[in-house]
Design a protein around this nucleic acid. Structure first.
Lengths: 337, 337
DNA sequence: TTTTCATGGCGAAACGATTAGCTGGAGTAT
DNA sequence: ATACTCCAGCTAATCGTTTCGCCATGAAAA
């Protein structure tokens, strides 16, 4: 690779002048400037980001750590984040913690090595701490995405999961359902907890209580949801409606229904919080909440870049987005009992 | 951040010794080694990758440039690539060219700045050249993924698209279909061309020729495929079977069928090359080819790392994977005409 | 004419790691 | 006792930038 020195030699100027031309950081006479530009293009010169990074401690990298890259919800986040990161002039380094705390720790250490300027983190582990830039303790600017963890004073972007679950549950109850089951998420994740909470809140507000064997953990996974749904629906006293806590699991449930030969919404009503791309081709169309992933991502980057530039002087911010209910044909009135 | 000097001072040794401990690059007495390790953990020291990168020209970064991050096929590639890249000890920098040549050029320039050690590229533009590390012309190690471009002497991973399309078409013809239509991909992409070629080859081998108005470009996009399918199926003389060139478009077609009230396979048979995750929940199950994305990605990384280590001394390699036909219930025998 | 001032451009010192080459003390052979 | 070997550990140069401080030149002020 050609270096700034090669350019300086060829243009008969100093490296300082070349640098000034590249960064517009000082006035350079038109004469010299054009010589420099000519040399740059003749040598096909590109400044080295590694050297720059070393000099003034900015790597131009933003790390995105997702909890499960195989989940289309996060795939969409990746898509949106790549665009936003590029728009702000950074590059995106992508990691997948695969819902494993030990991976998360390894990844955060790696991010520190890379001296990334900022982190967008879908946290897995309550205990894993944001890496410190310094032993005095200035942390790397970080935005938590989608999930909350206890006692981390960081910027956070979340969705109102309780509201989402309430909306869906109320919708089912409005149709007359009282025996509502759920395939819920892991209770160690805030999303899992909040969505179950929202459902329970909504039911209790109308004096209902789901039967304990109608509450099944589905781990936010398609295959788990598939078998849990089969199991749940084959039991003697199945629910008349099912609230599914996320999009991938909804897919698994629909697959289970098809395999069991159950008709939706005639035999059972299905609704979910969260969705996945491509679910629009399913018939019946799923009643669900849609979460504004793109807006959330853009906001996450706004917060992150702001903190990168202004440091710890600003207090942690917490932005909560609202989900919206999209009604399909997967839910019908409760027939008899 | 603590530096190697801080560690050296605290452990009362030279930076050379610290470096030797970190990299196991020379013998260090147990005494000093333990002092160094203690200092490292007390200061919470991590070596700076930027400085390392500057010194011996390896950034530990591998760039992945996909053509359309919103497409679940590529999302899957991203997932597999992240895992493979991490397994080889690198980190993944992700870019989305969004099928636009000018983006691709911008991205490749950026990759050069970052001095990435290697590139996995889903190429968009025939003309865009692999960036040169050097004005003498040693290129950055690159593997082209999924698509080929003319006259680039680089390693390539592809799928046998012609065979995929032939298999699907033969399957449809075996069911008795003769009026087969297709929603094909863009003809400026090798995947688009080869899949259409394969279909035409298969039909001509049996003395058939699709009617020109049954060959419709769908741009590999869900929404385009949706409207093209509507249009195609509403015309006076619709095909009895439809070959769709990729997974996302198949989703669009299924959605169009549902909206038109057409029954598959009774009213029309549908089959595709390529698939997308989650298509398993659709009923009827789609007859399609499956492409071994994970194997392809692992092989891509194997080739890439090999070339990073061995440079230009090895000739370009071209690995072609074979698709497999997965039969669902979306195709039926041709009824009368 | 001399002094002051402004300023375009340059030289050289960082940034944090690696590594070639050197130093000096202990062990061995003569 | 001298010379030689060996090797753990150190010093200092280097990678490619940015940037501080300086120099020299020419214009303006006295």
């Amino acid at each position: 690779m050609a270096t700034i020195r090669d350019v300086a030699n060829r243009a008969q100027v100093s490296t300082a002048t070349v640098s000034a031309v590249i960064n517009d950081s000082a006035y350079v006479s038109p004469e010299l400037r054009s010589r420099v530009l000519a040399a740059i293009s003749e040598l096909n010169y590109t400044p080295s980001l590694a050297a720059r990074s070393l000099k003034h401690g900015r790597s131009q990298l933003i790390a995105l750590v997702v909890a499960d890259l195989a989940n289309p919800f996060f795939a969409r986040l990746v898509w949106a984040a790549e665009a936003a990161v590029a728009a702000w002039g950074y590059s995106l380094v992508l990691f997948n913690s695969d819902e494993k705390p030990e991976n998360e720790r390894r990844i955060l250490a790696r991010i520190r090595m890379l001296s990334c300027d900022g982190i967008i983190l879908v946290p897995v582990d309550v205990a894993s701490t944001i890496p410190q830039r310094d032993s005095e303790g200035e942390p790397i600017p970080t935005v938590l995405f989608g999930r909350t963890v206890e006692g981390q004073p960081t910027d956070t972007i979340t969705i109102d999961n309780v509201s989402a679950a309430r909306q869906v549950t109320n919708y089912l109850m409005d149709l007359g359902h009282t025996r509502i089951g759920t395939i819920c998420g892991p209770q160690h994740l805030s999303t899992g907890r909040e969505r179950l909470d929202g459902m329970l809140q909504a039911m209790r507000a109308r004096g209902l209580e789901p039967s304990p064997q109608h509450i099944r953990p589905g781990e936010f996974r398609e295959d788990t949801a598939y078998s849990v749904a089969r199991d749940l629906l084959l039991q003697p006293d199945p629910p008349t409606a099912l609230y599914v806590a996320n999009g991938v699991m909804a897919l698994g449930v629909m697959r289970a229904l098809a395999d069991l030969g159950l008709k939706c919404p005639d035999d059972i009503s299905i609704a979910s919080t969260d969705t996945i791309p491509g679910i629009g081709a399913l018939r019946p169309r799923l009643t669900r909440t849609e979460h504004p992933v793109v807006d959330m991502t853009n906001e996450a980057l706004r917060l992150l870049v702001d903190r990168i530039n202004r440091g710890v002087r600003i207090d942690p911010r917490n932005v909560v987005f609202q989900p919206s209910l999209v009604v399909g044909e997967s839910c019908g009135p409760c027939r008899g009992q």
